[in-house]
Simulated assay, not measured.
Amino acid sequence: MPPDLPPSSIPLLTTAAAFREWREIARREQKTVGYVPTMGALHEGHLSLVRRSLAENDLTVLSIFVNPAQFAPHEDLATYPRTLEHDIVALAPVSFSSFNHTNGTVHPGPIIRQPSAIFLPNAKEIYPSGITQDVSAQKGTFVEVKGYSHQMEGKSRPTFFRGVATVVTKLFNVIQPTRAYFGQKDIQQALLLKRLAQDLLMSYPLPENVCIVPTARDETDGLALSSRNAYLSLDGRKVASTLYQALSAARLAWEEGATKAECLAKAYEVVETRMKEAQENQLDVDMSLDFIEFNDADTFEVVPDNTTMKDLDVVLLSGALFVGKTRLIDNLVLGDDTKIIG
């Protein structure tokens, strides 16, 4: 282990070569491998993905890599939280246990699974040709999912999904997971990566094994858990659930048969009310809505204003809200969410 890495009970692998050696042993032992890609600053949302993987696979690995290619030049790459020691401590006690069943026989003692390895590459390992946040100056091989990257989040962050698709393709090539796990909070990203696995004819993982896990939320106000929540001030945290409340109001109207336009009006009303309340309570925080929109779950195209729940089986309702300088995102799947989540 390199001397600059903190102590860890979980093996830390820093190069593709080292990880491939680990993966070859798992292959020889015919063990399934679950994979949770992260940028670190782990929270309960990440840990819920780890628990799901532990329950469904013999071995579970995580990667921690803050990917420069998905940050635009004006975004927060330099200040993105890097908390490796905390992450290792958070992961160490996470486990799954079940009784061992073989050919219908229950053997004494449970199977106990814990995270098996953490892949910790540096930027040179992932981008051998080098990497810059300026897309026009980038050299080397990049991956783009055409026609699915400019809507929703992509409208506000036009180079984001190019960076995500590229790094995840590279990580899938190294990890070769049986299953990979992504959170619903980043619904467009998760669905785009499922399509990527399909379009590139990937075997590791197969498209159906790109698993989308429900969003982990704060139990008090429903705020979607995110590493960027750490940026929020005390006053900012008091209003951070505004987006979730707005989406929830739109969902209720949708389920009552309202049109998309009527649902959006309900959502905007919530945001405006919360903004006024923040001013009246003299909270030291600014809020500004980036977007709230209804999109087709397959094409990501914007749903027409007169659409109702009778017209579509499943719809993505998503949004982004600035609380101070922190951009929070969230989404709800309307209709038959089993077609996406699970």
Rank of each mutant, 00 (worst) to 15 (best):
S53F: 07
T215F: 02
G34I: 02
V168M: 15
A253R: 06
T15K: 04
R28Y: 06
M1T: 09
Q138Y: 00
D221M: 04
L289Y: 01
V323W: 00
A17L: 09
M287W: 00
C211I: 14
E44T: 07
A320P: 06
I88V: 11
L47K: 06
G163S: 05
R327W: 11
S288F: 04
G109P: 07
L201F: 14
K170W: 08
E208N: 09
N103R: 14
N103T: 11
A137T: 10
N281S: 14
A297G: 00
S288I: 13
I10C: 05
L283R: 10
L120Q: 03
A240S: 12
A249F: 01
L62A: 05
D76F: 07
A190K: 03
F182A: 03
I340P: 05
Q282L: 12
L49M: 11
P304C: 13
A216N: 00
Y35W: 01
N229H: 09
K339M: 13
P68I: 12
L193T: 12
Q30N: 10
D134R: 12
E24P: 00
L13C: 01
D286F: 01
D336Y: 02
A250V: 05
Q279W: 06
V33R: 00
L47V: 13
L225E: 05
L243E: 00
S95H: 14
K238Q: 15
A249L: 02
Y148F: 15
I175Q: 06
T307M: 14
E277A: 11
A240R: 02
T242F: 03
A69P: 05
F96G: 03
R157Y: 06
R251E: 15
Q189S: 07
D87A: 08
P205H: 01
E144M: 10
D311L: 13
L317N: 13
L328Y: 01
I25E: 14
V106E: 12
I187L: 12
Q70F: 09
D290G: 13
E85M: 07
E24F: 01
A17R: 08
H101P: 00
P81R: 08
G104I: 11
D186M: 12
T242C: 12
S248M: 04
Y244G: 11
G236W: 00
R179K: 15
R28H: 12
V61E: 10
T15R: 04
G324C: 05
L289P: 06
W22I: 02
S95T: 10
G40P: 07
D286T: 13
L59N: 02
V145T: 03
V333M: 07
T38V: 13
G163E: 01
P110H: 02
T299K: 14
L289H: 04
E269K: 09
A197N: 05
K266C: 15
A41C: 14
R27F: 09
F142N: 04
G40H: 08
L171C: 09
S226M: 02
F300G: 09
S149Y: 02
A250Y: 06
K146S: 06
T141P: 01
S318D: 09
I112M: 12
V66K: 03
D235Q: 03
G222A: 12
P214S: 05
E21N: 11
E144H: 09
